[in-house]
Computed example of a mutant assay.
Amino acid sequence: MAKIAFLGLGVMGYPMAGHLAKAGHEVTVYNRTAAKAERWADAFGGRAAANPAEAAAGQDFVMACVGNDDDLRAICTGADGALGAMSEGAVFVDHTTVSAGVTREMAEAAGQRGIAFVDAPISGGQAGAESGQLVVMCGGDQEAFDRAAPVIEAYAKLCRRLGGSGAGQMTKMVNQICIAGLVQALSEGLSFAQKAGLDGRAVVEVIQGGAAGSWQMVNRHETMLDGRFDHGFAVDWMRKDLAICLAAADEVGASLPVTALVDQFYKDVQKMGGGRWDTSSLLERLD
């Protein structure tokens, strides 16, 4: 069992830290809203810290799941940042979806202090975090990954290293690129079915087991047809991720015409007031 700090208790981080505590690890948590950290500590028997440095001091592992590049920089190297308090030989595991650039920047800052850094973005949504069935895509040194993987297993059904620093983040971009086009196609298909006078549920029952089937179809068609989007991965966060995808595409010389188009469709959803709606809300702009 390890001594672990978990930084960031959002809809993903809160249950992930809980799985670590349930697995028997000694967990200290930090959250920007202190009351949430205290609530977690009361629920799981861990300790709440006042800042990232206090949480990270003396820990074997520091796990993070925050919002964006700036948030990651702040908890790593800002005032009371975690890296300055971590012991040499400790491992920092970042579950935030951020740019590969900031990942490499933080990995270098960690390395200068003798700290290993693993970028480990996640897929599976809030439901996956709560059930401990996340997919974790990792980049970084093999030895650091080998040390971190048994800890990550507390909330993962699959954890794999894809390469050096930044490889996890680039893999997460592939994931988001694929989802963007798929959800748009599913939205168009369901919209077409409705306008053609078909029973959307019956249609999905027939086609979901064939080549058109997908996780999104199986798990989202009911809520999409009912016009319910108050769950899942928010449009605002998807646009943040797609901006990273498009910037990375420029860097590597990749063409992402469909991704760029769907990003603009999500912008339309934001203008409709759907920034916090689930990403399947693309259907709403087709009505």
Rank of each mutant, 00 (worst) to 15 (best):
R147N: 08
E222T: 14
D119S: 08
A57K: 15
R113D: 09
G8R: 01
L261K: 11
A37Q: 02
V252I: 15
S99W: 02
P121A: 10
D42W: 05
R285K: 14
R228M: 02
G210V: 07
E205F: 07
E188T: 10
V203H: 07
G197W: 10
A79T: 15
N31E: 13
A23W: 02
K240E: 07
V218P: 01
V91K: 06
R32S: 02
L283E: 01
G111F: 12
D263F: 15
D94Y: 09
D226M: 11
E54T: 12
G114V: 07
E188Y: 04
G13T: 08
E88F: 02
M137K: 08
A57D: 09
E130T: 11
D146S: 10
A35S: 15
Q112N: 13
A156Y: 00
H19V: 03
S281I: 06
L72V: 14
V252S: 06
A127M: 06
L283Q: 03
A64C: 13
G125D: 11
V27P: 00
G209I: 03
S123E: 08
G78D: 10
G13P: 14
I179R: 00
L225T: 11
G253R: 06
A116L: 06
R104T: 07
A57H: 12
E222Y: 12
N175P: 02
K267L: 13
A116D: 15
